[in-house]
Design a protein around this nucleic acid. Sequence first.
RNA 1: AGAGAGGUGGCCGAGUGGUCGAAGGCGCACGCCUGGAAAGUGUGUAUACACCAAAAGUGUAUCGAGGGUUCGAAUCCCUUCCUCUCUGCCA
Length: 423
Amino acid sequence: MLLLQQLKNDQQAVIAALAKRNLEAAPLIEEVLALDERRRALQTELDQNSARANQLAKSIGQLFQSGKAQEAEALKSETAQLKDLNKQIQQEMDACAQSLQEKLYLLPNTPHHSVPHGKSAEDNETVFEAGRIPSLHQDAMPHWDLAKKYDLIDFELGVKIAGAGFPVYKGKGARLQRALIQFFLDFNTEAGYTEIQPPHLVNEASGYGTGQLPDKEGQMYHVGVDDLYLIPTAEVPVTNLFRDVLLAQNQLPVAYTAYTPCFRREAGSYGAHVRGLNRLHQFDKVEIVRVEHPERSYQALEEMVDHVKKILDALQLPYRILRLCGGDMGFTSALTYDFELYSTAQERWLEISSVSNFETFQANRLKLRFKDEAGKNQLCHTLNGSALALPRVLAGILENYQTPEGIRVPDVLVPYTGFDLIS
RNA sequence: AGAGAGGUGGCCGAGUGGUCGAAGGCGCACGCCUGGAAAGUGUGUAUACACCAAAAGUGUAUCGAGGGUUCGAAUCCCUUCCUCUCUGCCA
């Protein structure tokens, strides 16, 4: 959620920034400001009336105590009037505040100045490429065929148990996936991230805290009986650990890592590009989350990008880094770098990580603040990134590491898998 | 799931109708004391919103949340959420 203060002070700058998202925000911002003005006027009126009523109550009490019951009775009628009036004012003010809130929820985060202009994924800017794209043997296959050949993943069985997009991992496939999770967690922990095991279901307030609600209501699985949501990413429970939190400055920065399964309904996505592991309803992911001092958040973002690079270097996979353009960026982000892994057998890039700085956008909703040197409460900056999302990394390894003799296991994973070849 | 107890400031904890944004303690900050530290001692120490150009200041709201009774509610009533104890169930 954008800061009202920011809208008031830099209205034009906000409109210009949001234009990068191809959004004409001026009319909405006008509405927001008008509502705010009305709300403030009502607040002032309400406060004055309440002050008067408090005064009267005090006088009435004193009059009763000194036995002047008649005078006291006379004052009561005014307080009754004030009370009725205030009820109306309060109602209108609440309506204003709610409407204001709803409109603020509609405004996405303002893109960082380095975000390129653009409408779609085609306009993203490639900022880095690394790794060697292997030349595969003639009978090389996409991962879904490899998975079948070596009995690593059974998609049909998953359909029977739950539905499409819920794969069943078997034998060395399951083991390889677990090895990756373990490797990622160890790698993150060694870099200073504290491991967290959060709940996999969250309440509504948490959904609002990180911005999934109300924006992406339909994308989360909802457990109706208990009114809980299955997490679409560990970002939700981990970032919400800091909802309504006031940190001391020396508690910053916070760096957490968490492995969780992720659940996404992904309604309406079908076809060739969602085959195999490319797009799932349930998948595993290891996430990194940071809470930073505003002045350090962009440095932190670079550190996170660097960290993810190291993971991919260690796995010796070919990848590139994109700076997302305004049209392709997520609702809550100010700047996002996507990592894409080259899938040699599919001859396409697969997104495996998204690293973002949300600045104060989430912190504002979360009420996540710290006390600065002057003793003032300031909003923190929040960041997160995948390190990494499992299925596509698994797909990339299966495809890029295949040989006529079988699938080799990346060296760094062998201690975790206990085998170096899938055959 | 049933029965009972309870939710008060950063933490602990007092407070059953007005003088309560709230005693006392701990913690924290600054000062005094000290060669230095501890102890001692003094002062300060919630959040949000509104008014004000701003600071100072003033007002309003907040004792889990929402509603009600009352001139006046942390305190009484209702609803709801949560926590704890016992019983039941259970990995």
